[in-house]
Design a protein around this nucleic acid. Structure first.
Lengths: 187, 187
DNA sequence: GTCTATAATTAGATAGAC
DNA sequence: GTCTATCTAATTATAGAC
């Protein structure tokens, strides 16, 4: 693995763990075993490197969500697969956590991949649920867009509750509660 | 308002806006219009002052949630009142945001009020829903604890999605989706 | 209680040698 | 491409005068 790649992956880890404000160039260099001159040769500075890392984290999130959502079966089965997919719960969401970071929100460039990734997720969940409606899997009053937002929020909020409690239990409970509510809309 | 009080309130604002890592003593002093000597006279340092501010933010969150949850009516009416209570959505949750802050999570002292506040919230929501079950307001398979975790997570996650999108819409959708799902469990 | 001076450490980067 | 030296500003305090 070359130096630029090691720098990006180290930054992905550190952004996930400590956010943008809490991640220093020095910490990145040490984690990547790269010198200062090396980092500034490959990237113009911290924001440039962070942008590459955030984009990469977004791509990885999409790929993992897509794996669950594209499995065969009913809409509820796909959503359940997404809700129960393997996660490092106590690390939180590699993208959602950055939505809490003031410096990321303040920068149009850094915020863009965060916005786009979470927008994509809601759209993808909406599509899965809308397809379920088209196939007659749900009761008549079912609202795909609102339910998709609820699913995405339960996962993001589950991470928040779990990290605060230092326990996976609140995440698990929140997800199971959502799943049970969803099941009761299924015909 | 005396100096110590101004320092605490300023820290509350800044922690809410920028988190612990992103809030410097200097920024606090300027916001509070207090000198450096003044701050270090009243508090031993940044962690001490932050602890006072986090505790205060927790108390305020409880008071506001309690106002909605103690209104008269059915369990669903109370939960709806909580979900739709007035919020500064784009600022996020004054407590939940800190669950994403590495320095807060790493400190037992600073993490404690965050943990306790969100635990209290889940317990309080569980109690409201369990009372509804006792009154026969819900279908037989209804799970108060899981649903309470779901409600709390939807709110926390709604904040995350809204901040990422710079729009209140994802929060509103997530909350309305949750409300509709809950209503379908009501007898 | 508040103010100013001082200071050790880190953040974030530039310059130029190799 | 990588390394070391250098630099300015910010962070997080402490000390002592008023």
């Amino acid at each position: 693995m070359d130096t630029a790649e090691r720098l990006i992956r180290s930054t992905q880890e550190l952004l996930w763990e400590r956010g943008y404000v809490g991640t220093s160039p020095k910490a990145i260099q040490q984690h990547a075993k790269a010198g200062q001159g090396s980092m500034y040769h490959h990237f113009t500075g911290k924001p440039d490197l962070a942008l590459a890392a955030i984009k990469r984290n977004g791509e990885e999130l999409r790929a993992e969500a897509e794996t669950a959502l594209s499995r065969p079966g009913t809409a509820v089965e796909k959503i359940s697969a997404y809700l129960h997919r393997e996660r490092e719960i106590l690390r939180g969401c590699r993208i959602g956590g950055l939505a809490q970071d003031a410096d990321v929100l303040a920068s149009d460039e850094l915020r863009a991949p965060v916005t786009e990734t979470l927008d994509w997720l809601r759209r993808r969940l909406t599509a899965v649920l809308a397809e379920g409606v088209a196939r007659g899997e749900f009761t008549a009053d079912f609202d795909p867009a609102a339910t998709a937002a609820t699913i995405a929020a339960v996962v993001q909020g589950g991470y928040v509750l779990a990290r605060a409690a230092r326990s996976e239990e609140p995440f698990t409970q929140a997800v199971e509660g959502a799943e049970k509510l969803l099941l009761s809309k299924q015909l």
